[in-house]
Design a protein around this nucleic acid. Sequence first.
DNA 1: TCAAGGTACATGGACGTCCACGTATCCGGT
DNA 2: ACCGGATACGTGGACGTCCATGTACCTTGA
Lengths: 168, 168
Amino acid sequence: MAPEGTGAADPIAEARRLWAAHGWEDAAEGMAAVTSVMRAQQIMQARVDEVLRPLGLTFSRYELLMLLHFSRAGSLPVTRASRRLQVHPTSVTNAVDRLEAAGLVKRCPDPADGRGTLVELLPAGRELALLATGRLNEQVFRSPGLPRRRVASLVGVLRDLRRGAGDF
Amino acid sequence: MAPEGTGAADPIAEARRLWAAHGWEDAAEGMAAVTSVMRAQQIMQARVDEVLRPLGLTFSRYELLMLLHFSRAGSLPVTRASRRLQVHPTSVTNAVDRLEAAGLVKRCPDPADGRGTLVELLPAGRELALLATGRLNEQVFRSPGLPRRRVASLVGVLRDLRRGAGDF
DNA sequence: TCAAGGTACATGGACGTCCACGTATCCGGT
DNA sequence: ACCGGATACGTGGACGTCCATGTACCTTGA
């Protein structure tokens, strides 16, 4: 599916060269890093979505399903899910809307907090989440496109970056 | 601005642990890599957008302005810009719509191809692009949130990943 | 010459993301 | 007991991304 190198140069290396040529050498590597991360996300997102589309899922919704699957009670308040997934609360609301319409989760009032809404995983949701996990593991996660050691290095560097951003 | 570690654990390390505990050890590292890239992109995008918002720009539009700035003629066909930026042609159309409304670029028919549209950088666009570059270099690119060596490592690993995906 | 297939763009729709705002509820201090 | 600030969600809007479709236009081959 990946069209092999067309002989074209790496666009990011090209931009880095231009940055240096304009006297921005001290910012060139950072520019390359930011741009590379953007592009890598695009690549990963496309791979994952390709696997999930036949199941009627997106990565966001899949992540929410798995979060619920791993929770003891099979249900979580929206705010808690938002924090764990590190996305805006309205993004969770959006995902819940669609998952609920698909009969995969259910909204219930939180008995412990009158303001809160619990998102509860339904059996169909759990089943689909596990099916999706099997496919993702096989088609994406087990072969992310890099040698094992490079993957570990990537995860380590990004862990530092996330920690520096206050993620944990 | 980054709230220091709240004592909470790294959510991705947590997910990795759960993956291994469910017998998916061989996919755990890849899962962590994909998730890390997604989150890193979110972090970088937020940082960049914060700098560009006061200028009325987004990163996509900024990238298009800089691409035009670096082009010899100061103008490019939409398709060419799409390939260089590695985004869908309709995304470029979208960006051009907004940049044109802001008086930063101009659409012209391509004299060399009756089907084509040239996007031409206007003086105001060039000026704003350089102003934005100065701020991005200073506030983001020169301090991307990692030690110099780690940044270089990140760029290298992602370069391999992009090459593997057929980017160049 | 001319018809068939491919290319270049624009449009409309779906999706995920965030922000700004409003409403309902909880909680802490007086 | 109560009032004011904080919290939990939902809504509506903006944005960028992609896909599917339609409409021009180019180019190739018979």
